[in-house]
Design a protein around this nucleic acid. Sequence first.
DNA 1: CATGTTATTTATCAAGCGATAATTAATAGG
DNA 2: CCTATTAATTATCGCTTGATAAATAACATG
Lengths: 228, 228
Amino acid sequence: MTPRSSLSPAAAKPVAARRTRNKPEERHREFVRKAVELFAEIGFEAGTRELAQRLGVTQPLLYRYFPSKDDLIAAVYQEIYVNRWKKEWREGLIDDTRPIRERIIAFYEDYTATIFTPEWIRIYLFAGLRGVDINRRYAATVEEEILRPITLATRHSFGLGEEPPTPEEVELFWTLQGGIFYYGVREIVYQFPMPVDRSAMIRNAVDTFLAGVGPVLKRLAERVEVPA
Amino acid sequence: MTPRSSLSPAAAKPVAARRTRNKPEERHREFVRKAVELFAEIGFEAGTRELAQRLGVTQPLLYRYFPSKDDLIAAVYQEIYVNRWKKEWREGLIDDTRPIRERIIAFYEDYTATIFTPEWIRIYLFAGLRGVDINRRYAATVEEEILRPITLATRHSFGLGEEPPTPEEVELFWTLQGGIFYYGVREIVYQFPMPVDRSAMIRNAVDTFLAGVGPVLKRLAERVEVPA
DNA sequence: CATGTTATTTATCAAGCGATAATTAATAGG
DNA sequence: CCTATTAATTATCGCTTGATAAATAACATG
């Protein structure tokens, strides 16, 4: 494609602050890392020139590594949604040698340690507002790999049978998940003063939830009609 | 200011599809309404030309009603954060002639009916990501007008004293608030399939919370150290 | 040390942005 | 009906954006 006609040797005026060459692999990773940082700050409408400046390179160089800005954004998604996901989360949750409370608290400790960063939370919110697909898929993964296992394990620990969780039951655990997630949004996005530290919040939220979820699970299992 | 020099009468070529004139007040409201709609869809980087097109007017006309795009955005904030807030929410919550469960459920029914719209939720998230102030102030209002009253009323209904709520106690109720809010994010922003209807979600979340919050409130009141 | 490859730069384009100035025409008041 | 007012338009400016083409220089290989 790139036609290289007319090698006219008489058109050189500006000398340059030339950078040393880097290995393409390292550059690629470096570009994605800084793109995550920039997009988390500004949003995906952040300019490619700003990114290049932060990297100390020129803007067209980005297009040697990513055919378009959308491809760069796709690489950022991959980094956030895929690379930071841990298979151990599910494994820890279904390990019924430990008490349910311990498992759930340990999971949320580790999960929040992973996602409660400006990069993760802000890019997650930006992505959700930009297009629907990626976050819907992420939510489906959370439901399948985290919430259904938690639901089953909790139901089991209350002696309530082993059938697949109903949507109502899973929804209950979404409320817990959302409540904890929103703590991160307030802390990191709104920068709201947070007088209660994260671990205490998790313990109190989980303890409240586990202390109260038994009767509601039983009610759902028995299909009891609830008064408004 | 506007200098009107050289009234040269010989420079008219294009005829126009001229619109009828509207009252400035109505126009102002119409512009804000459509701006809310557009910004909710696209975000605040949506173009003024796009907005003008949707309104069926030309782009410079916007600048007769709003000195700058930021002023238009400020009007949108006012519409979402101020105009849609209801004083009755607080009043209903502190009305201790009704049972606490009923008050809390009634509040969340009405609150979610107000904010679970694409306009409200998406603009709220866009605003939070754009700048920190407005959502931090909104969160402060929610804490003061909603969560502290709920906390006090709940503590009272458990016979636990009338002192001002501690941060740990308020944080507990933030978890409930966040859990319910996140239902709206999943439904409206991520367009996740929601098999459980809103009222059932609210009832189950509130019942779980109220069934479990007693022991945790007592523990917090007695400053008991909690195992990890 | 010469040569080919390619990482990186310079230069530039077309489109879109927010905003302003000048012009035109709809309406109200005498 | 004429006139002053002003809502609304046309035209345009300066700047930024994503992207491409061409030139240049660092490095690997013989």
